[in-house]
Simulated scan of single mutants.
Amino acid sequence: MDGRVASSGETQRRDGAEVLRVENLTVRYGALVALRDVSWSVRPGEILGIIGPNGAGKSSCFAAVTNAVGHSGQTFLDGDEVSATKTFDLASRGLRRTFQQNSFFGELTVLQNAIAAIVREYSASLATSLFLPWREIAVRRQAELIAAQLLEFFGVAAQYHDKLPGDVPYGVQRLLSVALAYGTGSKVLLLDEPAAGLGGSDMQKLADVLVDLRGRNLALVVIEHHMDLIMSIADRIVMIDQGAMLATGTPVEIQRDPKVREAYLGRDE
């Protein structure tokens, strides 16, 4: 990554209370313990990176945080325990996530996907549609405007808005998936390998978007295998290996940790 992004990542934002905190998360799939007593937290305006080898339990951590799988341990959002809150309700409260695969409606245009992501905030009631159709039209036009602005912020240019997601470049698809998860604004965004399959200018665009989101006081938790990306933008990093936390610290501390170097980053010759 270039120096501009790296210098942005050096800014530490540790003001305010933790917006998301997880304590002793444990996930079991039958006899397999995928995650064991993992704890971390993230504040507004902070990027927390989660790294580890394949199969380390990183995605299981996100599934547990969003209550998509059975687990033990506790999760707190804005100080309230949400360990048993339904995934859909967590999203309504501002805790949202992406997946390793792109997530969108393939039969809708890029703009229509964005409208669908904000439909709860920008939609008319049935009564309005029936008896005040001009107001319904105004609401629809506002939704289109807000959706277009959302896409533009995430680097999805207007030239792609009328295309189907499958017809736009892969790098644009990745940005679209992040935009749809963010919607009209979230408090915490969990990103599962957002840079998968990216390189060069596409990865730089993603890095710029994540840094801009941090500047908007969003809390981001990013699972990532691209070490150059996560080390350049993260404020803190958690290393997970074989389901357990191996180390936590700043990018510099993580890179110097001998346990991390041995387990993941590789030893010096």
Rank of each mutant, 00 (worst) to 15 (best):
A148V: 12
L213Y: 11
R140A: 15
G94Y: 01
D89W: 04
G49A: 12
M245F: 00
L126F: 14
Q255T: 07
Y160N: 14
L191D: 06
M227H: 05
L90K: 03
T75C: 11
E18D: 15
V27I: 11
G73V: 12
D162N: 14
N102K: 03
A157R: 12
A196Q: 04
A31G: 15
G215K: 05
I146T: 15
Q112E: 15
E10K: 12
V211D: 15
L77E: 09
L32H: 10
F62A: 10
G106S: 12
D80C: 05
R267Y: 02
L176P: 04
P169K: 01
S129I: 14
F104E: 04
L189W: 05
A157E: 13
S201H: 14
I223C: 06
I254K: 05
A138Q: 15
R13C: 13
T87F: 09
E253G: 12
N24I: 00
A64M: 03
T128S: 04
G106C: 00
Q173N: 10
V22D: 05
E152K: 15
G155Y: 11
G199Q: 09
L213S: 10
A84T: 13
S186F: 00
K205F: 00
V42H: 00
D80Q: 10
I137T: 02
A114T: 07
L145E: 15
M1L: 13
L213W: 08
D268L: 07
L108H: 11
A143D: 07
V5T: 13
T26L: 10
G197T: 08
A196C: 01
P44Y: 08
G185M: 09
M227Y: 03
L229P: 02
L229E: 02
G171V: 08
R96C: 13
L25R: 12
E18K: 13
L108S: 05
L220T: 08
T85S: 11
R174C: 07
Y264T: 05
V260W: 11
V22G: 10
